[in-house]
Amino acid sequence: MFRNIIWLVIIVLLFAANLWFGSVPLQWDEVLSILQGQITGNSVAEIIVLQFRLPQATTAMAVGVALSVAGLLLQTTFANPLAGPSVLGVSSGASFGVALVLLFGGATGIQLTSADWYYREFTLVAAALAGALAVLSIIVVVSSRIGNSVTVLIIGIMIGYLVNAAVGTLQFYSNSQDLQAYVLWGLGSFSKTTVVQSLLLLASVLLIAAATLFFVKPLNAMLLGESYARSSGFNTRMLNRTFIFISGLFIALGTAFTGPIAFLGLAVPHLARTAYNTSDHRILLPAVMLIGAALSLSCNLIARLPGWDSSLPINAVTSVIGAPIVIWVIVKARSYGR
């Protein structure tokens, strides 16, 4: 409990730092008075904090929680330490939706994205969500017919390849301008959301995350493997389906608003297990939410460190932090002689 409170404090500090720091330097008391709703007379600062940094930090937090909990659920469901949001093909589905919107027009000569900038952003979110949910429903149907969760995992990876092939074909026939827009989307960014979107995202993520707390007992039972979970009185088939659906929903929500974010969902559960020296989900689920939010906010902060003119792509930062964690996990597992 004490450690969780420390994490909460760290999150609040990181959130504040996310509002404070950026390419445009602001005074802290200026930020504070903007947040309190006092008119500072400096409307530029107000727009920067309320329209840009606040939704960005909120989105970073929401996506951090969503992907990390998804990663934990997938790792427990598939009893595989390397399972993560990218393996189910759900984020590939989101990419496919976005590729259709961004590239299809150029590839076929039909102008689909003629509307203004804001409208186009909305279309992208809708397309990503549709793509992610389409793949998710395929996965759920497959998992309801096939009991073996590893088979579902492999099918998810294969769907990812198929979707990527379609995206590659679209890329081949599209013009360089559209291609650049797609590549930029793929690099991931927390700054694509409006204030309303970011708050809705955070609210829905926290709601689903709270719902996962009801599954602490079956999740713990599944640590002993599917057969033992069954003998402890759980309908493992139904549970597998539920966990795949919840994590798919998390990935769909996260990816739709930010583009695919690498490594966060894979690395955070490992960090939490090591930090708390446990795999008990009663401790791990809240820990993963807190560490996920904190790590995501840190990555967003590093991406926009003062001194850099513009922000780094968020995927570059999460990969630089996440990949070493995954390597360390593998090396650590090997050193125990496995």
């Binding site: 002993l224 493997g225 033992y228 003998s231 795999s279 597992a333």
Partner: peptide
């Protein structure tokens, strides 16, 4: 059962 339990924690 004969199933192995892989979890390390």
């Amino acid at each position: 059962l004969t199933d192995k339990i892989d979890d390390r924690y």
